[in-house]
Design a protein around this nucleic acid. Structure first.
Length: 228
DNA sequence: CCCTGATTCGC
DNA sequence: GCGAATCAGG
């Protein structure tokens, strides 16, 4: 099974919607939970409340040698030892960031603790120049003069809210299962501040019962096993 | 045990 | 890029 655009879109929606990797994998079908997680990370979306990383300290991070004495897989492992060069512990000149190889990570704006440089210019992933906060220059993305015609994937869901119709204004509650011909979303006006309409908020936000005390199959989005 | 997500690493 | 194996916490 390959990651088509639709499957990726579904993955994103469900991941951001709070579905677990297992649920997503179940809905997509043909992929494992691990595949979903791996793909999600490769897509850049990560860091959702994970049981293993529940708490995070804001204090100064203690030295983490990262032992990771990971024995290679039980398959062929001709890898007795591959010591990685540890990062330099004490840079003598912390105030000399080479502007030519700035970190290109778009998700972590680097705090400018360097008062020497009038501005920071770095190169983004696509080769574009990243601007500082003060820089004013709006390369306004040209509005595509395209006229998209196919607004009707199929008559089946002609007047229903499809995955692509989702916005902050409409209820994202899924109706049916992704991949099925009539899969769509509620599309009602949202309960302000929530991703769902009032009715579905009532379904989405319920008091969490203790794990052992769950009786009715939770009518959560994408929740139950596929029913046909 | 079950669940969860994170990470690694051979493919 | 993909995902099974593995890790690690709840």
């Amino acid at each position: 099974m390959s990651w088509t655009d639709e499957r990726i879109a579904t993955l994103k929606k469900m991941w951001e919607g709070g579905s677990t990797a297992s649920q997503i994998a179940d809905e997509l079908g043909g992929v494992s939970r691990n595949a979903v997680i791996g793909k999600a990370h490769r897509l850049g979306l990560k860091s959702r409340p994970s049981p293993v990383k529940a708490n995070e300290k804001k204090k100064a991070a203690p030295a983490k040698p990262k032992p990771a004495p990971k024995p290679a897989a039980k398959k062929a492992a001709p890898k007795p030892a591959a010591p990685k060069p540890a990062a330099p512990a004490a840079p003598a000149q912390p105030t000399t960031p080479p502007a030519s190889r700035q970190d290109a990570s778009p998700s972590q704006p680097m705090p400018n603790k360097n008062s020497d440089l009038p501005k920071i210019v770095s190169v983004g992933p696509g080769g574009f120049l990243r601007q500082g906060p003060g820089d004013q220059q709006a390369p306004i993305p040209p509005a595509p003069p395209r006229r998209l015609v196919p607004a009707k994937p199929s008559p089946e869901i002609a007047d229903k809210t499809s995955l692509l119709d989702l916005s902050d204004k409409v209820c994202r509650w899924p109706m049916g299962h992704p991949g099925e011909p009539d899969f769509h979303f509620c599309g009602e006006a949202v309960n302000p501040g929530f991703p769902y309409c009032v009715e579905h908020c009532g379904r989405a936000y319920q008091a969490q019962l203790p794990r052992g005390a769950r009786r009715p199959p939770p009518p959560l989005p994408f929740g139950g096993p596929r029913v046909r």
